[in-house]
Amino acid sequence: MNKRERRRTAVIFAVIALIFMLAAIFTGGGGTEEEPIQSVMRDAVLHDLNKVSLFGLMDVNPGLLAGFIVSGFLILLALICRIFIIPKFKPVPGKIQLVLETIVGLFDGMAKGNSKINKFLGAYIFAAGAYIFTGTLFELFGVQAVTTAGRSISLPAPLSDINGAIMMGCLSYLVIMSGGIAGNGIKGIGKTLKEYSLPISLSFRLFGALLSGALVTELVYYYSALSYVLPVLVGVLFTLLHALIQAYVLTMLTSLFYGQVSDNTPKPPREKKHRRKSSKANAAA
């Protein structure tokens, strides 16, 4: 493509974008019912207005439905990998094999690096990391659902729902406790209970991080004037970034605390008293 053709393509692209922007601005506000931003933001935090029906059984927060969809997608992906990719693994890996091995190796290495008892931990942080990362990216796709009130909403990240975040935080804490029991028996429970704030901090860290992403995205998309160019940064880049960061943070913290409570090596004798004694002896001398 030469310089002239490139310039022409850029002009066409700009004109189309301008047409879309103007159309959106001048057609905005035409809907029958518009939710005020305060209500949208409040609902993103509390999930008290917009509920979705879970297969017609009960009304749940949209995050739960998103969680089921994300899990279904991940299981389908894992099934495809298991049937079509893993049997064709070679000693010298191809591109897809390399990606799979890198991901599994990353979590396995993280578990091995932090604890001697790491068989379950590796599998858990792999699943948690995959769920957090994919769940966070899920909000980018804007999958639509209809609320029980008849409104159309885009499904949020599963962990921006407080219930999902509490589940993940508490489950991580239980996994950490299981590591304590595996490594130190009853003493391990005591060691884990010492970190009593951990389930709250893990839960609310996830909830806060993902909710803030969801709120900023909601805010940006609420006003059509902000819906051009800016979502590339706040919608895509920030979501990608905090998907990576949150997956890494939770898995790293879980494996770190797991290693700490499962560690059963005896502590070295304290040197403080000896030092004091020796300093006193030196002083006496």
Partner: peptide, 23 residues
Amino acid sequence: QILLHLFNFTILFGALYILLYKP
């Protein structure tokens, strides 16, 4: 809903472990 999230994640964990992580 917390228990439903837990149920969902447990299934995901089991499936990912059997289908992907372990092999």
